[in-house]
Design a protein around this nucleic acid. Sequence first.
DNA 1: TGTACATCAGTGAACGCGCGTTCACTGATGTAC
DNA 2: TGTACATCAGTGAACGCGCGTTCACTGATGTAC
Lengths: 204, 204
Amino acid sequence: MSKRGYHHGNLRQALVEAALDLIAEKGPTGFTMAEAAKRADVSAAAPYRHFAGRDDLIAEVATQGYDLFADVLDYAYDGGKPSPLAAFEAVGRAYLAFARKYPGHYMAMFESGVSVNQTTDLARAADRATRVLTRAADALSARIPADRRPPPAMFAAHINAMSHGIVELYARGKPGGRTPFTPEELLETGIGIYLRGLGLIAPD
Amino acid sequence: MSKRGYHHGNLRQALVEAALDLIAEKGPTGFTMAEAAKRADVSAAAPYRHFAGRDDLIAEVATQGYDLFADVLDYAYDGGKPSPLAAFEAVGRAYLAFARKYPGHYMAMFESGVSVNQTTDLARAADRATRVLTRAADALSARIPADRRPPPAMFAAHINAMSHGIVELYARGKPGGRTPFTPEELLETGIGIYLRGLGLIAPD
DNA sequence: TGTACATCAGTGAACGCGCGTTCACTGATGTAC
DNA sequence: TGTACATCAGTGAACGCGCGTTCACTGATGTAC
């Protein structure tokens, strides 16, 4: 599988991974082309054989991030098994787990300032991730009486927003944190209360 | 009131305002000391008579942001009138209105990477803002039967996270947006469903 | 009120730095015959 | 299989740039007498 061969072998991906490390360590601002090249053991000019420039490299990192994100969420959803509700809750947990496990990807996706429309690939990947979430919301939504059912896209947006907000406000390095609760607790309880509000969980 | 007198008069605040404009226009990354000085019509060295450096200026901007934020939320809360519920919802709307009206402050507070512990003033201001939110949650919380009442700090964190998530994901320039809903709609409905989940609003 | 001195806000020039990017090159690899 | 050529990934040096910050200065303002 390792296609080590031509010169470096696979510099493109090595640069992506160097960028991931750098972003995870110092934030999207702290990432530089020069430093990424250095970590991949090539000269500062080499990256330009594979990327049009800094933005292009970041876009690639974000694209891989969205693809991975979609995979992770989709895996957690598991086709809606064992129940739409349980699957939905698993997706929520997966959201947080992704942010924790892949901080470089997460930051490139949401904090680098890269536009989702920078690349068609990026737009496609971001769209796929959104659709996984929407599909999960959609399936659950079918269990709500039609007359008080919010549009599934709105449903998905609420969960997306709460998850993202928890990551940004409570799951970052901040020593001591700003609440006595873990992000996992916050998301679990938050989604629980929200789903109860939709009548999807019995009121206690 | 205008203490225009000594040389520039009030360069410190003029620099803060130049920074606010720059951050709102180009993001926290796009802000530079040199450009801020230029906008305030002084030389590039002048800011160092008032701030220890770049981080110090950003910290001041963020501090003023948190102070203003706390004021805005507190004003919306209005001592819990006419009812804890109505006041709480007003606080939610004020959150979003703040982010819209003061993008420079908002970005300096949440997207600049400045640590809340950079300055004691900053920590104090951030803490005050958090307490306004917690107080609103606290008052509402008293209406929930004690045995199924979440800790008010958790309650506040949920609302904080959802509000922040909506701002970050759906209230930014993104042309066309990523959902057909306005941020205001999303927050209004999201908080509504959440409060229903807590039994604070009748299930329709 | 007038004068002498102290203060200190803002200046202008300069610094070292690291950045993104370009360019002519070189040498390892792939390919055609 | 061997050779000649084409390709192209990576090099090394250099560029222009704008950044944050420092420093000796100057001149307007404040203050003591």
